[in-house]
Simulated scan of single mutants.
Amino acid sequence: MDPLPSPQPHANVVTIVILSRGKSGLSRCITRYLVTMAAADLLVIITDVILVRINDYYFPTTFLLITSVCSFLIALMRTVTDISVWFTNAFTFDRFVTICCQKLRTKYCTEKTASLVIGTVCLLFCIKNMAWFFTFEPYITIDNVPWGWHEKPEYYTVTAWVAFGWINRSLTPLLPIFLILLLNALTVGYNLAASRVRTRLMGSKNDVNHNDPEMENRRKSIILLFAISGNFILLWMTYVIYF
Rank of each mutant, 00 (worst) to 15 (best):
86 W>N: 06
6 S>E: 05
240 V>F: 05
42 L>E: 03
224 L>K: 08
8 Q>W: 11
91 F>T: 05
36 T>W: 11
79 T>P: 01
2 D>E: 14
18 I>K: 09
149 W>P: 03
167 I>N: 14
52 V>S: 08
181 L>I: 15
115 S>Q: 15
107 K>P: 00
9 P>Q: 09
60 P>C: 08
243 F>M: 15
118 I>S: 06
43 L>F: 08
220 K>T: 09
162 V>C: 07
178 F>G: 12
170 S>M: 13
231 N>W: 02
188 V>L: 11
120 T>A: 15
141 T>G: 02
79 T>C: 07
45 I>G: 02
165 G>R: 03
101 C>W: 10
138 P>S: 07
39 A>R: 02
221 S>L: 15
142 I>C: 04
95 R>E: 11
81 T>F: 05
42 L>R: 04
183 L>I: 07
88 T>G: 07
229 S>Q: 07
194 A>Q: 11
152 K>D: 05
165 G>I: 00
7 P>L: 01
59 F>D: 04
33 Y>M: 12
213 P>E: 15
17 V>F: 00
56 D>W: 09
169 R>Y: 06
90 A>R: 03
120 T>N: 15
39 A>S: 03
214 E>N: 12
10 H>V: 11
163 A>V: 13
215 M>D: 04
116 L>W: 15
241 I>W: 08
222 I>F: 05
9 P>I: 09
21 R>G: 04
91 F>W: 11
28 R>P: 02
100 C>E: 01
200 R>N: 13
127 I>F: 15
68 S>P: 03
162 V>S: 06
234 L>T: 02
59 F>C: 07
28 R>A: 12
133 F>N: 11
61 T>E: 10
242 Y>N: 08
52 V>E: 12
107 K>C: 01
134 F>I: 11
114 A>V: 03
107 K>V: 02
32 R>C: 14
196 R>Y: 04
176 P>N: 05
179 L>V: 13
122 C>F: 09
31 T>Y: 02
224 L>I: 11
130 M>Q: 10
102 Q>C: 01
16 I>C: 02
66 I>P: 03
160 A>M: 07
223 I>D: 10
106 T>F: 07
6 S>H: 02
214 E>A: 13
20 S>M: 09
218 R>P: 00
11 A>C: 07
57 Y>N: 13
220 K>L: 07
145 V>L: 14
112 K>T: 14
76 L>D: 00
59 F>K: 10
113 T>I: 07
241 I>R: 13
169 R>E: 12
21 R>E: 08
31 T>K: 10
13 V>K: 05
37 M>C: 05
194 A>L: 08
171 L>C: 08
183 L>C: 09
146 P>S: 04
243 F>Y: 15
64 L>R: 15
187 T>E: 13
187 T>K: 14
205 K>H: 01
133 F>C: 14
69 V>S: 06
156 Y>K: 14
46 I>M: 09
98 T>C: 13
201 L>F: 10
128 K>C: 04
240 V>S: 05
55 N>L: 01
187 T>H: 12
56 D>Q: 12
139 Y>M: 12
224 L>A: 11
218 R>M: 05
